[in-house]
Nucleic acid binder design. Structure first.
Length: 841
DNA sequence: ACTAGCCACTTTTTT
DNA sequence: AGTGGCTAGT
């Protein structure tokens, strides 16, 4: 009798649980309910893997770990009847029923979800708290680095580091490394500092200690790397600092060497989920492995085709060998794509098919075929930018929003031309990546002052600002202090605090004393003021403000940046409330990246690298620079493995697009001050020609027409010459340019109205006529001199449509035109560059 | 100790 | 092309 009730309840429970996740497809459901043991989810791009992760966690919390576990004891007929009713007619279970349903409960704080970026972690948290309320907040969702920081903050002392350790960023690392080079007398011609840093980073990714490296280093170079590594590590330890790689490395050491620590965290994190598993390193794998413990409740989600961080130690083997690392692992493939049109998805499939090293899967979609992919062959990077602007303009006029558009490129240096064109055309945009806000000199200086308050051992940060602004503390003095500190195995600040004990510092004592007074004032301010006021005081106490105010215009922008820093401190303090601390803020800053602050609410076009775009999606995507030597990059040309990584990057780029995809290449491209003529990328050829439409720039069409005309004349001439027995001479190339009435493409260094014209039309005679009209139209005759527009003029802008000129201000041969657009509001544009024309009536 | 001018170098991607 | 780091000169 009881047995039957249990069985009935069990059946109903499953039905009910499945109905709770009713919006998922059967494979996704399977992934949600596979709660026990190791699980590998191979999730293709756009397959809804975040949804699966969120629902999987929600299921663990709400229904516990026991989808297929036996039903709990004590089920009554009434329970069964009530559940039956809920399954059939809806409604919510009461408390008793809810408990019975979750009879193997999992508490949120036992769940650790590790993501790649802070942004992804934040998103996960948001979605969880939307679904689960308070319980969602209690799930531990963080990045590898921040999870490790949290562990190290508790346990660092076991490894001989202070709990208040500092985190060194790349710049700090480089400084530390330079000091090591000096100390060991290493010539950086033989081993550039950056390659040493890279090599050491890779060693740490593989959990190779300085000792191991010294023992195994075979050739001269790796022997030197090992020696540098050892000295560098000593230096960091003395400064009480970890670099990024150390955060993972030392956490793994901790878990390996201290069984009690290991057991504590294994007990703490009983369910582990890892996102973007294809981008994990050996060290990160070991971290996951150690945390998972004997229970092995590890769920990793990844896509081997989207592994794009091999260069910094990610190893695709982690995902390829998951089933060997965790025997008995379940494998679930999510292959249905919900994001892109069939054309876009198929193009991505075409490209990735050319890779050898992959698990192999083919994404499919029920979405419609969608528009063809467009390949635009531009003259130059400027023409390329202009083309993008005109397409965006068309979309915006048709009702799309700017923020639905993204421009993706291989390297940050490619953003320049697009940025310039957009800025001049008045198209609002935002660049993600490149130089981070927190990497600016003035910000780093301010943070260095704050760091030495938080961690007085931090000699490196101290050196950075001890004479900034200038305090007459020269290199010789700094070195003397450093030597004395080394002599007593202490920090430089200890020496500075006890100047009277060191007669050899007598000459510099007033300067050093002055610095020490600054330091004590900073400490006092930190102790007595709220965090943001303290930050604002830093620039006062240190004289930094005075220095910048004396520096004129540039100092002004730097001051503004510091102002931004103060406000971000305030934001942090407001968010964290009583938990906010100086160390906490510095830590957050150290681990933050630009993509984390990317805010999709602003209605602007987004520009970023394809790496930064991973995990994002946009209706309209432009991938620029599809040229051999750029994408795939020059570096990858000779290595098959590197090429495959480039191809995966291309796959990532393509699969960001939901509705339309625009690929472009340029005949001539100026990059790093040199003009290059690159062949179109092999990736273009890998796409089935039926999926893609090619379009040439207007001037290329003209050029070809000119060339054909020339050849015709030449032929006619040859015919005549032949009759007369004379041979022809001359190059068609120059003549063709001359016939087209333009300079060579390389010298056309400005965006032109002509280039901005002719969007999205099939090429051929019609397009060439259109283009030449545009060239003689709005762009003509307004280079400088009298104002091309007056207030009151009615104008039309390629992107913003019609509007009225409010104000015209001359600036250096050009004019700023302020326009009130009918639909887009008030914008400022540059007369010579904006795709703008006057409407004469 | 500071400044100016030079040079070299950058540029693959980032926590 | 632009920047930043370094040297040499003051």
């Amino acid at each position: 009798m009881n047995e039957t009730l249990s069985a009935q309840f069990e059946r109903l429970r499953k039905t009910y649980m499945e109905s709770c996740f009713g919006r998922l497809n059967p494979v996704q459901l399977q992934a949600v309910f596979a709660t026990r043991g190791p699980l590998l989810i191979l999730a293709g791009a756009g397959s809804g893997k975040t949804t699966v992760l969120v629902n999987r966690i929600a299921n663990l919390i709400r229904f516990g770990d026991g989808y297929s576990a036996p039903a709990p004891a004590g089920i009554t007929g009434e329970d069964v009847a009530r559940l039956q009713q809920i399954v059939e007619t809806g409604g919510r279970p009461d408390e008793r029923l809810e408990k019975l349903l979750a009879h193997w409960p999992v508490y949120p704080y036992h769940i650790l979800a590790i993501t790649f970026t802070n942004k992804a972690a934040g998103e996960l948290k948001n979605r969880l708290s939307d679904m689960l309320g308070q319980a969602g907040q209690e799930v531990n969702a963080s990045t590898f680095h921040s999870a490790c920081v949290r562990i190290l903050r508790r346990e660092a002392e076991r490894l001989g580091f202070p709990r208040s350790f500092t985190i060194y960023d790349t710049d700090d690392q480089q400084r530390a490394m330079k000091e090591v080079y000096k100390q060991l007398n290493v010539d950086d011609k033989f081993l550039p500092v950056k390659s040493a840093m890279g090599a050491i980073g890779r060693l740490k990714d593989q959990m190779i200690s300085p000792k191991d490296a010294l023992a195994t280093g075979k050739d001269v170079r790796s022997g030197l790397v090992a020696r540098v590594y050892e000295a560098y590590q000593k230096r960091l330890q003395k400064a009480g600092a970890f670099d990024f790689d150390d955060l993972i490395y030392f956490t793994v050491c901790l878990l390996q060497d201290f069984p009690d620590v290991r057991e504590y965290y294994q007990d703490r994190y009983r369910y582990i989920l890892v996102d973007e598993y294809q981008d994990t390193s050996v060290a990160q794998f070991q971290l996951v492995y150690l945390l998972a413990g004997p229970e092995r409740n590890v769920c990793v989600v990844g896509d081997d085709d989207q592994s794009i961080y091999r260069f910094r130690g990610a190893t695709i083997e982690n995902i390829l060998n998951f089933e060997q690392h965790f025997p008995g692992a379940q494998l679930i493939r999510l292959e249905q794509n919900y994001r892109s049109t069939a054309n876009i998805l198929n193009a991505a499939n075409c490209v990735i098919r050319h890779n050898q090293a992959r698990k192999g899967k083919t994404l499919w979609t029920q979405n419609g075929e969608g528009a063809q992919i467009l390949h635009y062959e531009a003259d130059s990077e400027l023409d390329e930018a202009a083309h993008i602007a005109s397409v965006i303009g068309r979309h915006v006029r048709e009702g799309a929003r700017l923020r639905d558009h993204a421009v993706l490129y291989r390297m940050n240096a490619q953003s320049g031309p697009v940025e310039n064109y957009f800025a001049r055309a008045g198209i609002p945009y935002k660049i993600v990546g490149g130089q981070r806000f927190y990497d600016r000199k003035e910000i780093k200086d301010m943070l260095a002052y704050m760091s030495i308050v938080a961690n007085p051992q931090d000699d490196l940060r101290l050196r950075r600002i001890i004479n900034e602004p200038a305090r007459k503390i020269g290199a010789a003095t700094v070195q003397a202090v450093a030597d004395l500190a080394a002599g007593r195995a202490g920090a430089m600040l200890d020496v500075i605090a006890h100047l009277e004990e060191y007669p050899q510092l007598h000459r510099a004592s007033s300067a050093l004393g002055g610095f020490y007074r600054v330091y004590t004032q900073l400490r006092a301010a930190a102790d007595s003021l709220p965090l943001d006021e303290f930050t604002a005081q830093v620039m006062e106490i240190t004289g930094y403000r005075a220095m910048l105010e004396a520096a004129g215009e540039e100092g002004q922008t730097r001051l503004e940046n510091i102002g931004q820093l103060v406000s971000s401190v305030k934001t942090y303090a407001d968010q964290r409330g009583p938990e906010a601390s100086l160390a906490g803020f510095l830590e957050e800053v150290a681990l933050i990246s630009d993509i984390d602050s990317y805010n999709e609410d602003a209605d602007v076009v987004v520009l970023m690298t394809m790496h930064a775009a991973k995990g994002l999606e946009f209706d309209y995507v432009f991938i620029v620079g599809l040229e051999e030597g750029i994408f795939p990059s020059e570096m990858s040309r000779y290595s098959e493995e590197d090429l495959e990584e480039e191809r995966r990057l291309c796959y990532v780029g393509i699969t960001r697009a939901k509705k339309e995809l625009y690929l472009s290449s340029a005949h001539a491209r100026m990059l790093f001050g040199q003009t290059k003529h690159n062949k179109p990328s092999r990736f273009l050829e890998e796409i089935d020609p039926r999926l893609i439409r090619h379009e040439e720039s207007a001037s290329a069409v003209r050029m070809r027409a000119a060339r054909e005309a020339y050849l015709q004349r030449q032929n006619a001439y040859l015919d005549r010459s032949y009759n007369r027995g004379v041979s022809a001479s001359g190059s068609w190339n120059g003549a063709a340019y001359a016939a087209a009435g333009r300079s060579t493409p390389a010298s056309s260094a400005r965006p032109r109205a002509a280039a901005a014209g002719a969007p999205g039309r099939s090429f051929g005679p019609a397009s060439s006529i259109r283009a030449s009209q545009a060239a003689g139209g709005p762009g003509a005759g307004r280079s400088s001199g009298p104002a091309p527009y007056q207030s009151g003029d009615h104008v039309e802008h390629k992107v913003f449509g019609r509007g009225t000129v409010l104000k015209v201000t001359p600036v250096g041969g050009d004019h700023i035109v302020e326009i009130r657009f009918d639909t887009a509001g008030v914008k400022k544009t540059m007369a010579n560059y904006a795709p703008l024309r006057r409407l004469d009536e």
